[in-house]
Computed example of a mutant assay.
Amino acid sequence: MFTGIIETLGEVVGLVHDASNLHITIKSDLSTELKIDQSVAHNGVCLTVVSLADDNYTVTAIAETLEKTNLNLLAVGDTINLERAMILGSRLDGHIVQGHVDQTGTCIHIEEKDGSWFFSFKYDADKGNPTIEKGSITIDGTSLTVVDSGIDSFSVAIIPYTYEHTRFNTYEEGTVVNLEFDVIGKYVAKLLAARQ
């Protein structure tokens, strides 16, 4: 369980394909605080630490994860949003994030407006994942509030702090991002669909 508040950025320093799996090695200032078997969200994808070495650690993504997320697009040198699992009893500053990406989306528009930024994204609505205005959405692991909501698109507003301390400052039109839709909204949508 995560909050969607990004702790730090990591750098991808190694990618090793092993059958249908991908071993991802990341350099991060969190590395010395991690332990093997710990869960860490990588661009919003919950992955398990499998090895540690100096200021690097390695996680493994399986084929299903690679098919549903943007991790299959990683290259050595890329930055990645990182968040360790939440601690029970601490504040939930973002929203409930499971680290289970529902699908990817594509950035379709970026607009700077008086010191903040508005990002618009498009996604495949056939997968049945809804957004609502003022509801929560997780983009590459970052907890955000939906500003505008369409059938297959939505926008979010990004404050300067978030822009500077997450991958948002690397996005451009066409960037593929991981989307985790609000867990409560998904349950409500599923219950309503079952009743119809």
Rank of each mutant, 00 (worst) to 15 (best):
E7C: 04
E7S: 10
E11L: 12
E11R: 12
V13I: 13
V13F: 10
L15H: 09
V16S: 15
N21C: 13
N21L: 09
H23G: 03
I24L: 13
T25Q: 15
S28R: 03
L30T: 01
L30M: 14
L34E: 07
D37R: 13
Q38I: 05
V40E: 00
V40K: 01
A41F: 06
H42A: 05
N43G: 06
G44S: 05
L47T: 01
S51R: 07
D54N: 14
D54P: 02
T58C: 11
V59N: 05
V59D: 03
A63Y: 10
A63S: 13
A63K: 13
K68P: 07
N72R: 13
L74S: 00
G77N: 12
D78G: 07
N81V: 07
L82P: 03
E83I: 03
E83W: 07
A85Q: 12
L88I: 08
G89V: 07
S90M: 11
I96Y: 07
V97A: 09
G99L: 10
Q103C: 13
T104L: 02
T104H: 06
T104P: 04
G105V: 01
C107W: 02
D114H: 15
S116T: 14
S120G: 04
S120L: 02
D124F: 04
K127S: 03
P130N: 10
T131V: 15
T131G: 01
T131S: 04
S136A: 14
S136M: 05
D140K: 06
D140A: 13
V146P: 00
D148I: 05
S153W: 07
V156D: 00
V156F: 04
E164W: 00
E164H: 07
H165L: 01
H165Q: 08
T166S: 06
N178R: 07
L179R: 02
D182C: 10
V183N: 10
I184Y: 08
K186D: 08
K186F: 10
V188N: 11
A189G: 09
A189Q: 09
A189S: 14
L192M: 15
L192P: 03
R195C: 08
